[in-house]
Design a protein around this nucleic acid. Structure first.
Lengths: 195, 195
DNA sequence: GTCTATACTGAGATAGAC
DNA sequence: GTCTATCTCAGTATAGAC
């Protein structure tokens, strides 16, 4: 049955979103999906590959929308490039809260290295290029580092749980969170380089 | 023997720094430390508690230095508060490259939630307070989120491996990395709040 | 091609002898 | 304090039923 594969994907997505990747065993997934353990390995190969498919089916439309938005910009500002990258994700989060929860889990468990490199690389590469053009006065070295800081802030912002909790818990909608992030990042990027 | 405990700590620190926490099994640690498996549970209780002790013995002096530096500031700028927090870590990294590698591993594997909450909370709490005083024009909500973005950028900066790789690998000493980070963060914090 | 039953290996944890 | 033996649970691999 083709339904088996879907049942596994849906159940895995829910459980991993709720409990995290490491804390969700394959045996837990199969018991809730009412399928056999070996079916997971038949359809996906391994637990990691299952996760991979979960990410792909969620991220692909977001990434497509990102590129479409980027292509529409003519001579963009820093903010506009950041918006083209971040707003599609905020909108996806609005439509499907499960998605952002899953991504947050991945980030907070540090499982993204391989998966991100595989699926986000082409997209993030294009965005770094666009951002570079908008910031011609920065040295290559400085730009690389600022892009790195940005990646950290973005990744962290998607997690529900803050790494280092400040004075009270952050709140508000995902969308407003992203808008604040864009302002913050633009401020960082616009700083004059310290020599 | 008291030496057993030290041997375990040193070996665990080295192996986890090299391979990561999940990838380092207790059996691997004991074979290199030439101790018995049960000795780890006797001295530490669990693998997680062992990690906890590793962090504490490394982080305690850094945190003490952070607070000392903060206390020395009279009417600080944003940059000075950030320096008080970040430079002690940069100096520790200079003296002991193992330390920053271990912290990076923890962050990239998302193992910090519990440990950070336990040991960094008092320190980070004081710094958030100091930073708040320097930025009186921001709303509470906006400040919380910017602190959150900062935490993400800081955490990510300690990892050797970038989450989202940009155009080429970032390089340079840890110290210069931190200096760039401070400029970037100060720029973000100084932005006017969007209403 | 799809799925089931079952066995294998390695992990962290624990009880109890010494 | 230390060590042996054992437990439970994880992900994985395979043989074979349909």
């Amino acid at each position: 049955m083709i339904e088996t594969k879907t049942k596994i994907l849906d159940t895995a997505e829910r459980l991993i979103g709720e409990r995290g990747y490491s804390a969700t065993s394959l045996r837990h997934i199969i018991s809730e999906a009412h399928v056999n353990l070996a079916a997971i390995h038949y359809h996906f190969g391994s637990k990691e590959d299952l996760l991979d498919e979960l990410i792909v089916r969620k991220a692909a439309p977001v990434n497509a929308e990102r590129l479409a938005r980027l292509d529409r910009l003519e001579s963009p500002t820093v903010e506009q490039v950041l918006e083209a990258f971040l707003l599609p994700m905020a909108e996806a989060a609005d439509r499907d809260p499960q998605f952002v929860r899953l991504m947050g889990r991945m980030l907070s468990e540090g499982l993204i290295q391989g998966i991100v490199q595989k699926h986000f690389q082409p997209v993030s590469g294009r965005f770094f290029g666009a951002l570079r053009l908008v910031l011609p006065s920065l040295s290559d070295e400085e730009f690389r580092w600022r892009a790195h800081f940005m990646a950290g802030a973005m990744a962290h912002t998607m997690c529900g749980q803050p790494l280092i909790t400040g004075p009270g818990e952050p709140s508000g909608s995902f969308y407003s969170r992203i808008e604040r992030l864009i302002v913050f990042l633009a401020g960082g990027f616009r700083m004059e380089e310290k020599k």
